[in-house]
Each structure stands twice: as structure tokens, then as C-alpha cells.
Amino acid sequence: MLPFDGPTWLAILEQYNQAIWPLHGVAALCVLAAIALAFSGARFAGHAIGVLLGVLWIWIGLIFFGGSVAPFHFAAEELAGVFVAQGLMMVLALTVMGRGGIFGWPGGRTGVLAVVLVVYAVAAHPLLGHLLTDTPWSQLSYVGVAPAPTMLLTLALLLLALPRPPLIVAIIPFLWALVTGYMAAGLGLALEYIPATLGVAAFAVMVVRRFQRSEPWLDG
């Protein structure tokens, strides 16, 4: 149940973007570092990715939902809690518990999907939003500081976990992909169907990889 309409959601994003500027740059550096680490195959990549993405999820929970969304949404505190929980799980699962294993290029269609997701989350989402819907830059969602593109980036990087992605940290991002689809319908923001669909597709691929010994159609 959404207690606001599309223009109000965009206004919330605008106020938030203006309030945190220029921290988008810091978030972008964290995102680029996480992407580079994921593709590098470095031994410590899992730990670093866990910390970087964990911090971004916690930030979005506390500052975006707990601060900017709270005056407008009766469930903002609960949403903030979910994002903080996801951030803590990312840190714990990928560092202390070492569930991330090694990150690296998985090859095949999984690799291609991961690249598509990364490119969309980092660049295409705001770019398409501006070019196709004429939304001002200040009202767009940016990776690392806003929920939908950060959800997508997280799922993309988890696709790069070898030998298999840790599903436990993909559940909340998957649920947020569903919420993003619900918001697309409820707020009349058609472009949000793209991250929603990509997020669901990424999670489906992860589930298949997790439970099947070999997946030739994914690796083909």
C-alpha cells in the first residue's frame, strides 16, 4: 500500500539527493571498487564486497528510509530495518562467515547477465530515466544511494560469486525487486519495471545455479 503518488516519490528523491549531495561521488567510488573487486578474482574480494555493499545498504536504510521517506510513509521505519538487516547480513555472510567464496568471471550467460545488470544499475537506469521520461537529474535514483539500482548491483555482483552465489543475502534484494515492480505499477513509473524484471531474473538464475549441479543453458 503506497501512501503517496509518483510525483511525491520523485519529490522525495529530489529532496534526498539534494540533502546528501555530493556524497553520490563517495557512493560511486564504493560501487566502482566493488565492481572491480568482483571481476578481479582477488582473494579478499568477497570480504571487501561484503563490507562495501553492506555499508551502502545500511546507509540507504538509515538515511533514505529512516530520514527522507519517514515523513511520508507509515512503514518507513520497518523498511529502514529491512535495509539495515540486509547490510549487516552482507557484512556477516561475506566476511565473518566467508559465504561469498571467491568472486570472478563466471563466463557464459550468467556472466553476460551480470554485466547487463551492472551496466543498467550504474549508468542506464538514470540515463534512461532522464532521456525517456524527461525526469530531472535531481529526481533520479542512483546506484549506491537509492534502493532499486543498489538492489540490482547487489544481485549482479552476487552472480559473480563462485562456485555458487550465497542465496541468503539475495533474498531481500529479490523481495525488493518485487516491491520495485509493485511501485512501478502503483506510482505509474513504467521505467521501474526494468530493474524489477532484471532483479527477478537474476534471482531466478541464482536459484538455478544453487540447486543444479550443472546448468549448460546458463553456461552456454
Partner: peptide
């Protein structure tokens, strides 16, 4: 006022 007056 549901939705319609929940504005910044």
C-alpha cells in the same frame, strides 16, 4: 486526504 495531501 489519503495520498493526495501527502506531499512535500
Amino acid at each position: 486526504t489519503w495520498i493526495t495531501f501527502n506531499v512535500p
